[in-house]
Amino acid sequence: MDTAASVAHLMGFGPDRIEDLKTAISEACINAMEHGNKLDETLSVSIILCMDADSLEVRVVDTGDGPKGHTARPDIDKKMHEEEAARGMGMFLIESLVDEVEWISSPPLGSYARMIIRLHPASDSTQAQES
């Protein structure tokens, strides 16, 4: 995560966006270890960074088959009132923190989460035009 944060900083990302990126990568790594690699300590999780002029792509790669379909959006109120388990928010959190995300399965090589964070997200340019 520190490497991704350093690259994002050098690209000009602000502190809040860098924290979003670090959290998204952390969540993707946790999912990769738990679900992809089934907590097998002999298997690795790789992080691949690709950048262009205005975005940073991060791939978190594991040895699993990838998620089976898309999980339901968590009910935050139920989780806050402990009516549902606190776990199960990783994919939702990742989707909330980055500009684009997809989960790609490519057996037998494994699977990966592909996340893109943009230096100037569409919502930022819209807000700038409205000001």
Rank of each mutant, 00 (worst) to 15 (best):
Asp2Ile: 15
Thr3Cys: 09
Ala5Leu: 12
Ala8Thr: 00
His9Trp: 06
Leu10Gly: 15
Asp16Gln: 15
Asp16Ile: 15
Asp16Leu: 13
Leu21Lys: 02
Leu21Met: 11
Lys22Cys: 06
Lys22Met: 10
Ser26Tyr: 09
Glu27Cys: 11
Ile30Met: 15
Ala32Cys: 10
Ala32Arg: 03
Met33Gly: 06
Met33Glu: 07
Met33His: 10
His35Asp: 14
His35Val: 14
Asn37Tyr: 08
Leu39Val: 11
Leu39Gly: 08
Asp40Glu: 08
Leu43Gln: 12
Val45Thr: 15
Val45Asp: 07
Ser46Arg: 14
Ser46Leu: 06
Met51His: 09
Met51Leu: 07
Asp54Cys: 06
Asp54Ser: 07
Asp54Leu: 04
Ser55Arg: 14
Glu57Asp: 08
Glu57Phe: 05
Val60Ile: 06
Val60Trp: 01
Asp62Glu: 04
Asp65Asn: 05
Lys68Gln: 07
Thr71Glu: 11
Asp75Ile: 12
Asp77Arg: 06
Lys79Ala: 01
His81Asp: 08
Glu83Tyr: 14
Glu84Arg: 01
Ala86Cys: 00
Met89Ser: 02
Gly90Arg: 03
Gly90Leu: 04
Phe92Asp: 12
Leu93Trp: 03
Ile94Asp: 03
Ile94Arg: 00
Ile94Ser: 00
Leu97Gln: 01
Val98Asn: 00
Glu100Tyr: 13
Val101Gln: 04
Val101Phe: 00
Trp103Asp: 10
Trp103Tyr: 13
Ser106Phe: 10
Pro107Ala: 15
Leu109Lys: 14
Leu109Asp: 14
Leu109His: 14
Ser111Arg: 04
Ile116Asp: 09
Ile116Ser: 13
His120Glu: 13
His120Gly: 07
Ala122Arg: 11
Asp124Trp: 05
Thr126Asn: 06
Gln127Met: 11
Gln129Gly: 09
